[in-house]
Amino acid sequence: MKLHDIAHARTGDKGDVSNISVISYDPAHWSLIRDHVTPARVAAHFGVFATDDVTRYALPQLCALNFVIRGALTGGVTRSLALDAHGKCLASVLLDMELDNVKTVTD
């Protein structure tokens, strides 16, 4: 199972900081997402960020997490050489995260 199967996401940017929301479609999957999509796993998934660069905020009433990644935009939108200088695509990359060892709790 991929994170994409149970959650949706959106990227925002401010300077050299990217933030990625991860939102559970079904409240039944919230605890699973909360427990498995940790800053360490997010950093490991991208492979180019350190865990310490990733801060996570939780909004349980919305079944939503917000990941704030410092230094994610290679110097910031205005001077980055990146094609996607805003990092708009990063949320979809995160949704590719495999949750293979995770059982769905709804069934």
């Binding site: 959106r10 933030n19 479609y25 801060t55 909004l59 919305l62 917000n66 704030v68």
Partner: peptide, 14 residues
């Protein structure tokens, strides 16, 4: 769902 995505758009500490 559209509202939650926009709520967190470009937000750090909510």
């Amino acid at each position: 769902a559209t509202c939650i995505e926009q709520l967190l758009y470009e937000i750090h500490d909510p």
